[in-house]
């Protein structure tokens, strides 16, 4: 997976977020403040513009730039959290020009640690971690099992999707949905849903 692959990933994310903008906003309206779709759309549009302007030369530099742009443009909790995820992944990749599935797995774990350090959320708190952590685990397992890259990304995407859906019965303990207490039960977490979109886009980039 080279720089071009990660640029394609960001393109796929931007397209998916735009297509799902209203859906994400509706999920957020139910248990948050109805801005998640609009915020991520603004952030990933800005990230694409930043990439077009700077043409980073390595996957690591590309992801750090995407992360910094999200922190600068998105606001809310999702800006710093997603921004940190991309920056940590980018930093884990270092100067490498080509990223193996094993390195991607390392990068994803770094992203997860960064998000958890900043947001202090654990699995089961009904946040993006509920999609991110299973995806990281699934990718690590796939790498260990020696699956082909496309199969590994497929497994990660499926785990993220399943993790997001599994937030429906949970009561939120972090983020704005936590203010609803027991009334947050019965809704999919918007952050977990958008994280699942990111992994769907990763799979889509691989099958280009």
């Amino acid at each position: 997976m080279n720089t071009q692959f990660f640029a394609a990933w960001i393109e796929e994310i931007a397209a998916a977020v735009r297509a799902q903008r209203d859906h994400l906003t509706q999920l957020d309206a139910a248990i948050g403040d109805a801005d998640h779709g609009a915020n991520l759309d603004r952030g990933f549009t800005a990230a694409q513009e930043a990439l077009a302007g700077a043409s980073p030369q390595t996957p690591g530099a590309l992801l750090v730039l995407v992360g910094s742009t999200l922190i600068r443009k998105v606001g809310g909790a999702s800006g710093p959290l997603y921004g940190t995820a991309f920056r940590e992944m980018g930093k884990a990749f270092g100067e490498a020009a080509e990223i193996s599935p094993a390195e991607l797995s390392t990068g994803l774990n770094a992203a997860l640690s960064g998000v958890q350090r900043l947001g202090a959320a654990a699995e089961g708190d009904k946040t993006m971690v509920d999609a991110l952590a299973p995806a990281a685990k699934a990718l690590a397992q796939a790498v260990q099992d020696g699956l082909k890259p496309e199969e590994a990304l497929e497994a990660a995407a499926a785990a993220a999707e399943q993790g997001a859906r599994a937030t429906v019965p949970l009561q939120a303990r972090k983020g704005r949905a936590s203010y609803l207490g027991p009334r947050s039960v019965g809704h999919e977490d918007p952050g977990a849903a958008s994280t699942a979109l990111l992994f769907g886009a990763l799979k889509a980039a691989a099958s280009r």
Partner: peptide, 30 residues
């Protein structure tokens, strides 16, 4: 109604209120 969302953040009938709200249009505790 958040301008970007275009519709009310929750539904409430004429005879109901939300107790324990915040300031972001989110429903309250009960």
């Amino acid at each position: 109604t958040v301008p970007a969302a275009g519709k009310p953040t929750f539904e409430l009938s004429d005879t109901e209120i939300e107790l324990g709200i915040g300031i972001h249009g989110e429903p309250g505790r009960t």
